[in-house]
Write a protein that binds this DNA or RNA. Structure first.
Lengths: 216, 216
DNA sequence: TGTACATCAGTGAACGCGCGTTCACTGATGTAC
DNA sequence: TGTACATCAGTGAACGCGCGTTCACTGATGTAC
């Protein structure tokens, strides 16, 4: 890449970072202005157009950025799990939530814009989340209790897990960072919730076929 | 109430309805302007201040409105369930999702603003959702399988159910209304997810105390 | 290697626009006698 | 009941401001010979 291109990429990244930074104090992407972003990034408003057509296009780039780094994390965890031959629920949840706090800007953006961004951004996020859910449903084959479930059921469970995880993000990022106790309690509840889902999955098939409770 | 007061309440309601109407085509509350609301409501911008200090205050009123009607629905369902002596999962989920589509404006607002509204609005919604979760956790006593769980666990499960239900709202409201097939599939998946959670709850205690799987 | 020209990321002035908010007002409704 | 005054929901003009976008520009970097 030429020097000029390198500099351009640098400015582009500065704009993306600036947008995330402006969302830090709880503001939504949708009411951050183009001029604010360029001001934060230290360029003139018109320079914005060298990189993005409009704020929506910047938002989509942000989705890509965020999900790229998230996919990287998940790939590493997947390798670890394959090495160990199983998934450690507690460890995975704690690691995930730690990562969420560490990369708070990214996850805040995901949780926030998931339902309230522009249509394009919402679709992009949904697409990425579906992708994560698909990966997860194949990972479930690692679990002896699950590997015989039809893939439709695995999809359904993966969807539940992903949605639940996004909710954890929203909740943990709503807590002030010095409230360590509350964060810990939330993490413990998250571990329990994921365990509960897995317990449900373990007994899913037999419940369904052999012994339907009259209450269910 | 005097004639003047009645008229004032009417205008107030018109403003609330106008705000919801403006969110109909997928826009977020946060980027709807005061002037748009009054224009939609058919009053002059300055009339707004006779009813609300600012848009945030209108948003909080909207949260109250929405949750009031939702609480009413849940109270009715609760009475039905007590009459029957149990909760019919499939029926409850289908009824809920039908209601969600019927009162789309309300649930769209809830799902959207939950994470991305102003801090005050987010807190208000979280407070209401916690309230719903508390009610639900006491309702769980209706289930023979659950009534012996410690209330901490019931809270954890109720929280999972509420969060999952909010996600259904977001998803079903993202579907175009003529896509009946997709709506049906989503409903079926929702039923399964709630069943899975209940299966998990049923086996939660025994899994935990007697026979911890090495994979969990 | 040196020169002449092309490219293009970022600049800075300018525009028209919708915004939130202020203010003094109007006229229907409410109240006191 | 009738009259005189008070209240106050809604009006309409005006304000200063930040916005997105346009345009012609500058000057560093890249390219061709």
């Amino acid at each position: 890449m030429s020097l000029r291109d390198e500099k351009k990429q640098q400015t582009r990244q500065t704009l993306l970072d600036a947008a995330l930074a402006l969302m830090n104090d709880g503001r939504s992407f949708v009411n951050i202005s183009l001029r604010e972003v360029t001001r934060e990034a230290g360029v003139v408003p018109t320079a914005f157009y060298r990189h993005f057509k409009d704020m929506d296009e910047l938002g989509l780039a942000l989705v890509d950025d965020v999900c790229l780094s998230l996919r990287k994390l998940l790939r590493e965890e997947r390798l670890k799990a394959q090495g160990a031959g199983h998934i450690a629920i507690k460890g995975s949840v704690m690691m995930f939530l730690l990562y969420v706090r560490q990369e708070a800007r990214y996850f805040d953006f995901l949780a926030r814009e998931r339902w309230s961004g522009s249509v394009k951004i919402r679709e992009a996020i949904q697409r990425e989340l579906n992708h994560f859910a698909n990966d997860l449903s194949t990972d479930f084959r690692l679990f002896p209790e699950m590997q015989n479930l039809p893939s439709e059921d695995l999809q359904m469970i993966a969807d539940l897990v992903i949605n639940t995880a996004i909710n954890w993000c929203g909740e943990i990022l709503s807590l002030p960072s010095q409230q360590v106790r509350l964060q810990y309690e939330l993490s413990m509840r998250a571990v329990k919730q994921l365990r509960l889902i897995f317990v449900g999955a373990k007994h899913w098939r037999s419940e369904k076929t052999s012994n339907p409770s009259p209450n269910l």
